[in-house]
Design a protein around this nucleic acid. Structure first.
Lengths: 135, 135
DNA sequence: TCGAACCTTGACACAGGTGTCAAGGTCAAG
DNA sequence: CTTGACCTTGACACCTGTGTCAAGGTTCGA
């Protein structure tokens, strides 16, 4: 698959695809043209990269965690794993957990605010005094 | 509280504090000096801003959700809320939920990979097939 | 009074992710 | 062969959140 098709299918610009490749997030072979050639796994990769970038991760972090994200885990990704890699991944896992906690707390706060707002709007609007707004 | 003290307590640079203020995330009054003066709530605000920035949110988003995050919700934040604001907040809430989902999925994938790695290391390493580390 | 420590604004620089444009190579269709 | 669609690399520019430095005002202690 050439870069244009890949980009179109993933809904990104070719600029982005080249950038991800330059950052080592995806790979390509070259045709005799010198044109980039992407295999079938590239589309999924790019979509995953987009997701993670949108979620606020940097390409560095994404490069670290991408190998863990293969659906059917290639036995290859278990070869030659250094303790440094493991440590880095554990660190990333924990950072992700922290992020999830923060986002969850804040999402809940926003949701709570909205709920409260809605109650205040609903309650006094209809003159049904469900939760005694005015005694 | 002056800017230096605030920054020091929050563990950020005064540059950052001024930036957050310029973006409307915190406010200050001015002394006759023209020095900034922050009230007691500023420290918590800055810490919350840091958390959210670290979690990958932009100052724009943070400005939108910060008002919902007051611990004892000031009745003031329920006054004059436009439907636009509500819509924006609902949107942010949903975006946060999406982000949380993505991060959770990927965190779990990383954790699963690490677990699998550990099993492969523990299992064949000791010549006992059990999952006991060393008897 | 002088210097140190703090504050002010303003500017330039950087990294990351992206847009966009230029100058040129490749290839298929007319 | 020419045209147009696609590819290549390279460069410049933008936005964000920071760092850093400059030039100057304020305050306080020696």
């Amino acid at each position: 698959m050439r870069i244009g098709e890949l980009a179109a299918r993933a809904g990104v610009s070719t600029r982005q695809v080249r950038f991800y490749e330059a950052k080592g997030l995806i790979t390509s072979t070259r045709l005799r043209n010198n044109y980039r050639d992407y295999d079938g796994t590239a589309l999924g990769r790019v979509q995953q990269i987009r997701e993670l970038l949108d979620a606020g991760l940097s390409t560095q972090v994404i490069r670290a965690v991408l190998p863990c994200l293969e659906s059917p885990r290639d036995p290859i990704v278990f070869e030659g794993v250094t303790t440094e890699t493991v440590t880095a991944l554990e660190c990333e896992r924990d950072r992700l957990t922290g992020r999830i906690g923060i986002l969850t707390r804040n999402r809940d706060a926003v949701a709570g605010y909205l709920t409260e707002l809605q109650q205040r709007a609903n309650g006094p609007a209809t003159n049904r005094g469900a939760d005694r707004r005015s005694p």
